[in-house]
Amino acid sequence: MVTPESFYHVALKVTDVDAAVAFYRNHLAGEVIERKRPDEDATGAENVSHAALQVGDKRLYVFDRAPYEAAGLVEDLPYGFLHFGYVVPDVAAAAADLEGDVLFVMEPTVFGDMKIAFIEGPAGERIELLEYLD
């Protein structure tokens, strides 16, 4: 069993990041804490438009493409719910603990300043396990 330190975020893939930001700001008092658009020469995981919003006590990320999708680590994903994320102290240890009991959508991978892995829940939902690297 893995014991997460915290529930961190929900991620959505949307057709229009600006429209999604406006919706969550106007209807759920979302506060934009980060907004990025890719540079003209961006490739892979950097070629993603996204915003992070604080909605209530949680973060909501809206992407035009998931960074791990843009990097080619998973197949193209449909619009809508991408995943929810839990912070764990050690992704590799969590993965070892879960191995054989769950389906891994993406094995542990260093991604920027994090180590992440994705597992599939019982309804097919994607769950991100994330560890911040120093």
Rank of each mutant, 00 (worst) to 15 (best):
Phe118Val: 07
Gly124Ser: 12
Glu128Met: 06
Ser49Lys: 09
Tyr86Ser: 01
Pro4Gln: 08
His27Gly: 07
Met114Glu: 11
Asp16Gly: 04
Asp76Thr: 09
Phe84Ala: 09
Pro38Asp: 06
Pro122Tyr: 05
Leu129Cys: 05
Ala20Leu: 03
Asp90Tyr: 07
Asn26Phe: 00
Pro78Ala: 12
Glu120Gly: 10
Val102Lys: 02
Tyr61Trp: 07
Thr43Glu: 14
Leu103Gln: 10
Gly124Ala: 11
Ala29Thr: 07
Gly56Pro: 05
Ala20Thr: 07
Tyr8Asn: 11
Leu130Pro: 00
Glu128Tyr: 02
Val14Gly: 03
Asn26Cys: 09
Glu31Gly: 01
Gly112Met: 09
Glu125Lys: 06
Val10Met: 15
Tyr86Phe: 14
Tyr61His: 13
Ala20His: 02
Leu53Arg: 12
Pro108Thr: 10
Gly100Leu: 09
Leu103Met: 03
Val105Gly: 04
Ala11Gln: 11
Gly30Asp: 07
Gly80Ala: 09
Arg25Thr: 14
Tyr132Leu: 07
Ser6Pro: 04
Glu125Phe: 07
Ile33Val: 15
Ala70Pro: 05
Val74Ile: 11
Val32Phe: 02
His50Lys: 12
Leu133Tyr: 06
Leu28Ala: 15
Ile119Thr: 08
Thr43Val: 15
His9Ile: 06
Leu133Met: 10
Ala96Pro: 07
Val105Thr: 13
Arg65Ser: 12
Gly30Arg: 05
Pro4Ile: 06
Lys36Tyr: 09
Val10Ala: 14
Arg126Gly: 00
Val55Met: 07
Gly30Ala: 07
Pro89Val: 04
Pro89Tyr: 05
Val17Glu: 02
Phe63Asp: 08
Ala70Asp: 03
Glu120Ser: 13
Thr109Pro: 02
Ala45Leu: 04
Met114Leu: 14
Ala19Trp: 01
Gly80Asp: 06
Leu12Trp: 09
Gly121Arg: 04
Arg59Met: 14
Pro108Glu: 09
Glu46Ile: 02
Ile127Gln: 00
Asp76Glu: 13
Ala70Cys: 03
Asp134Gln: 11
Arg37Cys: 02
Phe118Tyr: 15
Asp101Phe: 10
Phe7Lys: 04
Ala71Ser: 08
Phe111Gly: 00
Gly72Arg: 08
Val17Tyr: 01
Lys58Thr: 09
Gly124His: 11
Met114Arg: 13
Ala51Asn: 14
Glu131Asp: 11
Ile116Pro: 00
His50Ile: 00
Pro122Ser: 12
Ser6Cys: 09
Pro89Asp: 14
Ala96Lys: 13
Met1Ile: 03
Phe111Arg: 02
Leu73Ala: 04
His50Gly: 02
Leu103Thr: 14
Lys13Val: 10
Asn47Phe: 01
Glu69Gln: 12
Asn26Ile: 01
Asp41Ile: 08
Pro78Trp: 02
Asp41Leu: 10
Gly112Val: 06
Lys58Asn: 12
Gly112Glu: 11
Ser6Trp: 03
Ala123Phe: 06
Phe104Pro: 05
Ala20Ser: 15
Val2Ala: 04
Ala52Leu: 15
Pro89Lys: 13
Glu31Tyr: 00
Ser6Gly: 07
Ala19Met: 04
His27Ala: 13
Lys36Gly: 08
Gly121Cys: 07
